[in-house]
């Protein structure tokens, strides 16, 4: 292992890690919003939208992100829809993540017995109040483990961004290997940088998971 090489590559890896983080977290933020909206549409069976969302979820849960990105980035411009690589990365991740988040969140919603809604309504709460104060807190806390798993999964998926030329960690490593053939150093740095990004998420995730268990009902 050549430390000088590692030092000289360090700024490039840092830049790449920042890009990975930026796109990763933006994509995840949008995927949570999207997943949330889709889950509510699905759960409350809002007409028409509920079908469209259903198709979207099945399409994006059953195809690889890599293929989705290729289609979005290289395919769509051919019919006049050109999007830049970073936007495409965020969009791809948000669409993929949205489909997963929607399913996790929906199973959270479904885990709540109908009797709770009925009780809340009979106590004189409005429909919105019921959803906001009774259903959502429980649904969110019971879908947290799945949420955390999704976040880790989505952050890992960012490694395919290299295919649409985003200079993320994966691409930087490949590019440097191609340029200077310092394979071992490049791979070792790749591993370490992914550890730096994903270890905290994994640890924080398990802490959050424990803290949010408070709403477990009837256990």
């Amino acid at each position: 292992m050549n430390w000088e090489v590692i030092q000289s590559y360090l700024p490039l890896y840092e830049k790449a890690a920042l890009l990975t983080l930026k796109i990763g977290w933006l994509g995840i933020a949008f995927s949570i919003i999207l997943g949330f909206v889709c889950a509510i549409i699905r759960h409350y069976k809002i007409p028409v939208l509920h079908r469209i969302v259903g198709i979207y979820i099945e399409l994006f849960r059953n195809t690889p992100l890599l293929i989705q990105l290729f289609f979005l980035y290289f395919g769509l411009p051919k019919i006049g829809i050109a999007i830049d690589a970073e936007f495409c990365g965020v969009l791809g991740l948000a669409l993929l993540g949205g489909a997963y988040m929607a399913e996790s969140f929906r199973s959270g919603l479904e885990s709540i017995e109908p009797i709770q809604t009925e009780s809340a309504l009979s106590l004189g709460m409005s429909r919105t109040q019921t959803i906001w104060h009774v259903i959502l807190p429980q649904a969110i806390s019971s879908s947290v483990p799945a949420f955390v798993a999704n976040i880790v999964f989505l952050l890992k998926e960012t490694s395919v961004f290299s295919a649409i030329s985003l200079m993320d960690l994966m691409f930087t490593a490949k590019d440097l290997i191609g340029l200077y053939s310092k394979t071992i150093e490049c791979l070792a740095m790749l591993v370490i940088f992914y550890l730096i990004i994903l270890l905290p998420v994994s640890i924080v995730g398990s802490i959050v998971e424990k803290k949010l268990r408070f709403a477990g009902f009837g256990e």
Binding site: Y73, F74, K78, I164, S165, F171
Partner: peptide
């Protein structure tokens, strides 16, 4: 990289990807 470090490069890993992107206006 060596002679014109001031120019921003958009790198691709395959010819197919580079050509497609160039055609698409990248």
């Amino acid at each position: 990289v060596k002679n014109n470090p001031e120019i921003q490069l958009q790198k691709f890993d395959t010819y197919a990807a580079a050509k497609s992107a160039f055609e698409n206006g990248t």
